[in-house]
């Protein structure tokens, strides 16, 4: 038994967020220092990566009309991670789907969405060009294209926030960052064991599907269970880059466990537009990943070595 978990909750990135540390004593100054550092890093990431803030680095980049734009190093790192993710997911995760997403109707925060008929982006083409010049601290996006980091930004931010907490408290026994369900974990819990992460059951609001036992790494979930909009709420925000429209294939939700949250989230996004055979084939290439795939019909399927806490009864 190490002690207790001190948690702070706040709102950022359009969702409920939490940072938490394992500590022997809640009154230690380094507890507050670590929590402050985590929350501040989330705020800094939002300022760099949000497409809903007109003054964010990402908004300035998207308004750059194909030219080079000086941006925060967080955006440069996130773009590099997104480009890598696009490559290893064979384009199923694509940070340049924004025109298709906006055309589909997701053109403002979820709190502000109105119902209007969907349309397909004119001349839709996936995999628009992005260039990152880390040395010069600048990036560019091809003219007419735009970037949305919705499928990687929260995982990236959670990873960075956890690192900020570890820097603020060298030797941090355990830390957790939860950005609306995209979760980064390290170290131990107050009872000295691994972190327990409940997977929400998309079929039954408020119910838990299973509990994961994660020693360190990231957990991310993507799906079409709740973020629906448009006429009769038939549309969802998961755009299939191949068509530029709301994806037809894919599960209700999919949860991915990875060595870090930056890696978990784009894979979850890619699997969310994949059939079950496609998801199995995808994960067979990445032994460090595991997933829980909840199809729209049928029973949930665990893929890879999913670290389920509960004993499994045959």
């Amino acid at each position: 038994m190490i002690g207790r978990l001190v948690q702070r909750t706040f709102r950022a990135m359009g969702t409920s967020c939490a940072v938490a540390v394992t500590t022997r004593s809640a009154g230690e100054p380094r507890v507050e220092r670590a929590l402050d550092a985590g929350e501040a890093e989330v705020a800094a990431c939002e300022q760099a990566l949000s497409r809903f803030r007109p003054d964010s680095d990402l908004s300035r980049l998207n308004g750059g009309e194909g030219g080079w734009v000086d941006v925060d190093m967080r955006l440069l790192e996130a773009l590099s991670a997104a480009l890598h993710a696009r490559e290893i997911t064979d384009g199923k995760f694509d940070p340049t789907i924004l025109p298709a997403l906006v055309a589909a109707g997701y053109d403002r925060t979820f709190d502000e969405l109105e119902e209007r008929p969907a349309r397909t982006a004119d001349g839709w083409r996936a995999a628009a060009e992005i260039e990152v010049d880390a040395g010069a601290g600048r990036a560019r996006v091809e003219a007419g294209a735009a970037v949305d980091l919705g499928g990687i930004g929260k995982g990236f931010s959670a990873t960075r926030a956890l690192q900020a907490m570890q820097s603020a408290w060298p030797g941090l026994p355990g830390g957790l960052v939860d950005l609306g369900g995209d979760i980064a974990l390290a170290g131990v819990t107050p009872d000295g064991g691994p972190w327990r992460v409940a997977i929400a059951d998309p079929r039954t609001p408020g119910a838990t599907l299973a509990t994961l036992m994660v020693e360190s790494g990231g957990v991310a979930t993507s799906g079409r269970d709740r973020r629906r909009f448009g006429p009769d709420r038939t549309l969802h925000h998961l755009i299939d880059p191949a068509t530029g429209a709301s994806a037809l294939a894919g599960p209700l939700t999919v949860t991915v466990v990875a060595p870090d949250a930056t890696e978990a989230e784009p894979h979850a996004t890619a699997l969310a537009v994949s059939s079950l055979p496609e998801a199995r084939a995808h994960l067979s290439r990445f032994p460090q990943l595991s997933a829980l795939y909840v199809p729209r019909d049928g029973e949930p399927v665990a893929i890879g070595n999913l670290p389920l806490l509960a004993e499994v009864a045959a």
Partner: peptide
């Protein structure tokens, strides 16, 4: 599978 109470965090998509 028997889910266990007392999780430190819960996944969500929105």
């Amino acid at each position: 599978v028997q889910p266990t109470a007392g999780a430190h965090a819960t996944t969500q998509t929105s």
